[in-house]
């Protein structure tokens, strides 16, 4: 009984860390315009809309976060192997990973923007100086929380995987959660605030992203301010629930049927969530209805 209580407590703590990580990850990727909204930032100058938005095209978020978290975990593992204190090792590992993230971010912005010279998009050096540090700060929170969560799973719950392998698995999961949950807030709403809400993205509007703010010109940090209200917490809840349910079902149901209990519990959780998702979707469609105009605007899903 005591063991189960301890396990549930660790699950709750890991879930809380994951929530913080998810929120920070999504805000970071929105500030840097990573993931699928990046395609519109990349397209805008080609349509004649020169902008001052960051263009952090490292790769999709899941592989990128797979690297940052696996790197933090790898460095922390190596430092722990030479008898460093675990907390210190995790902090140094995350700091090294954030340094690499920052360097990749700057090379992506410089490379993409310099390659758009034909469309007269200049390189704004002040963006590089002001925004890179903000994405690095958010990335540090996301990476440190995720690596600490992996460390807890290994040390407190006795997970058999070594730290770098846990890092790659949960890093990819973190990137996927943030990319799937948070990006619509930025890519489909924030970038197209000058079009009616829910209008979709007709081809004629491609690249016409919002470039001017209420006062002055829009900066990527304003996008972080916007998405930290809805997108960040939503991604955090998504990743937190993934981690919590994953650990919770294993701790409670693993003793049943030689481990199959946990597998069956996992399938049941997925079915329950599918029912909830379907209900929310039909409720939203019935309540708000489809978007109607004279000419139906075709939904254009931009490639990431």
């Amino acid at each position: 009984m005591e063991e189960i209580l301890f396990g549930i407590g660790i699950s709750a703590l890991a879930g809380a860390l994951a929530t913080v990580a998810g929120a920070a990850e999504d805000t970071e990727s929105d500030i840097g315009s990573q993931g699928d909204p990046n395609s519109q930032v990349q397209l805008a100058p080609q349509m004649g809309y020169v902008h001052r938005i960051y263009n952090k095209a490292v790769s999709g978020e899941p592989p990128a976060y797979g690297l940052w978290v696996a790197l933090a975990a790898g460095v922390a593992w190596a430092l722990m192997a030479i008898q460093f204190n675990a907390i210190l090792a995790l902090v140094i590992g995350s700091a090294v990973a954030v340094f690499v993230q920052g360097v990749y971010a700057t090379t992506a912005y410089l490379g993409r923007t310099a390659s758009l010279a034909k469309f007269e998009q200049p390189v704004y050096i002040d963006i590089l100086k002001s925004v890179t540090s903000v994405t690095m700060a958010h990335a540090f929170v996301a990476i440190f929380a995720t690596v600490t969560m992996c460390f807890l799973m290994i040390e407190a719950l006795g997970h058999p995987f070594p730290l770098p392998l846990m890092g790659i698995v949960w890093g990819i999961a973190l990137g996927a959660a943030g990319s799937a949950t948070g990006n619509p807030f930025y890519g489909k709403e924030r970038q197209y605030q000058n079009y009616p809400f829910g209008a979709g993205l007709p081809i004629s509007a491609s690249g016409d992203i919002v470039r001017y703010a209420e006062a002055g010109e829009r900066s990527s940090i304003d996008n972080g301010w916007f998405t930290s209200k809805g997108a960040g917490p939503a991604s955090g809840i998504c990743f937190g629930l993934i981690v919590f349910f994953e650990l919770w079902r294993t701790i409670l149901f693993e003793p049943f049927a030689a481990g199959w209990g946990a597998v069956i519990a996992g399938v049941v959780i997925i079915i329950v969530f599918m029912v909830i998702d379907r209900y929310v979707e039909t409720w939203a469609r019935n309540t708000y209805g489809p978007y109607n105009t004279e000419e139906a605007a075709p939904e254009e899903e931009a490639a990431a």
């Binding site: 095209a57 592989p63 696996a70 790197l71 992506a108 993409r112 730290l163 392998l165």
Partner: peptide
């Protein structure tokens, strides 16, 4: 191999090989 440092090396290589062209693509590459 037992400590899975290979996992980190794998991701380092995978991002490093795709990043240069991904970062520099465009008409003026």
């Amino acid at each position: 191999i037992g400590g899975c440092v290979l996992a980190t090396i794998f991701m380092l290589g995978a991002i490093a090989i795709q990043h240069p062209f991904n970062a520099c693509l465009g008409p003026n590459e």
